[in-house]
Nucleic acid binder design. Structure first.
Lengths: 126, 126
DNA sequence: CTACGTGCAAACTGTTTGCCTCTTG
DNA sequence: CAAGAGGCAAACAGTTTGCACGTAG
């Protein structure tokens, strides 16, 4: 696939953030650089990047989030606000010690779901 | 919440399968027992059960799947067909050895994404 | 000229919601 | 008769897609 300005902007945005943005957020930021860019382009590009293994997709609460950091690391997911935070330490877990039932492994995700500090303080809200 | 027939059927279906069904599949099976049951009821009930901690929700490829087995175990997810398979062995991973950044942990998911044997054989399809 | 990426808007799919009815205590 | 659970259909949100256009090789 060609490296178009749109594609470059999307990659730059993803590499430049530690939040794990969804398509809408990426779109809103991308249009600051390329105002006429379409949301469909964002989805198409993210899809391609994921299939090429350039980025990782994280499904949470029905929304797809994307992470340019494909090196294995756990995520903290807030069940209240949907926020996703990295745990930078990698973990060594030998997947091959498990019975993989013939699956050809592509990636391993360790997701820790809980309530983030922010949502813990604003109790009873939400 | 009251134990209504609808709720019972949904719980029974979930406890009686090892597939990790989505709402539609549950709905289709539930209506075999209660023909006039509505899809909204399925969603509402699954939502409540999840919030009560009775079942676990697995988001994959934009679809919510549910698992009545809430005891910690890894999942194999097929990136081609979306199938979810249990790995029955539990894993002991001490989450507290990680920097949890103030999150109050609710659950830990180890998801192994890959290609299942079925999809490996029918290559180039999909 | 050809191939392909894009903008745009319409279509789709999974999920949620409002409202009224029915049931239960 | 009050409170809550369900049926139904409309509404929603996120995502995908078809098509016409533009641009690079």
């Amino acid at each position: 696939m060609r490296m178009t300005p749109q594609r470059k902007v999307i990659i730059d945005i993803l590499k430049g953030t530690k939040s794990h943005p969804d398509a809408l957020w990426i779109y809103q930021n991308a249009t600051k650089k390329i105002p006429r860019m379409g949301l469909g382009t964002v989805y198409r590009t993210l899809d391609q990047l994921e299939r090429e293994g350039e980025i990782k997709r994280i499904d949470f609460k029905g929304i797809a989030h994307y992470d340019a950091n494909i090196h294995i690391h756990p995520h903290l997911l807030c069940s209240k606000c949907g926020k996703i935070v990295d745990i930078s330490e990698s973990y060594d877990f030998d997947v091959n010690s498990l019975d993989l039932k013939g699956f050809k492994v592509e990636s391993v995700n360790l997701d820790i779901v809980g309530v983030c500090p922010d949502c813990q303080s604003k109790k009873e809200v939400n």
